[in-house]
Amino acid sequence: MTTLEAPALSVPAQRRAGRQRTRSAGYTALGIVFLAVMLFPVYWMVNASLQPSGNTLNASFFPWNPSFDGYARAISEQGANLVTSLIISLGTVVFSLLVAAPAAYALAQFRFRWVNIALLAILISQMIPGIVIANALYAAYNDLGLLNSIPGLILADATHAIPFVILIMRAFMIAIPTSIVEAARVDGAGLVRAFVSIVLPISRNSLITAGLFAFLFSWSDFLFALTLTTTDEVRPVTLGIYQYLGTQVSNWSAVMATAVLSSLPAIALLILAQKFIAAGATGGAVK
């Protein structure tokens, strides 16, 4: 059976004669090799962050004598920025879900006549380059006094999240049987009540998936941090890393320690919330 499937790489092909079990063990080994190559940069980031010398010049392949100086410096210099990033990201999650979840439900269940146009508009909005939005927002924020402000960055970062959240939640909500909501309506619940007490609890998984991605998108944002702040009043950690890079990198271990700390949400979510991340990565994607 396996031989009938799409051929992959030549090494496994040579094992065709081998027994099923050795073969699949071979595949697993090969898969681990591929993964190791792909994740090597991540390993190197962690390794470099623990090097004592402060630069990667003599970095050994493994941090035999791990030094946490890089982390000490990263936390003292970038700790506040990490907190800023965290506040902005959580704010983006709340705002995006509040705005997008009802819209997703409406587009999934209300049979508006213009649903197709709305979906097309959302799809196209995802294709608009961020720099276009930044150009226009800078001028508008300047007039409104939203530059260098956390609400300003939350609103801007939500552009990464809202179209995605609407589309992914709609894909889940379209499967909710109308009878469930109708039963509640018969019992006298209004639309809003039915949405809050029935639809949202049923959609818990998709809410979590959408929320996790909204968090990651906002946490990763660099463009709006770069363009919509002019002072160091409000400074997300992505911008902190960029400034490290700009000022002639002399202390790689501090840069890499900051990079590791900024990667923690992604790493933690990929391991702890794998189910939700996988749902977000494949959900609605071309099937």
Binding site: M38, V42, L216, S220, I241, Y242, S263, A266, L270, A281
Partner: peptide, 10 residues
Amino acid sequence: LLPWLLPLIV
């Protein structure tokens, strides 16, 4: 998926 989830600046 990890490289895809990391902040690009990282």
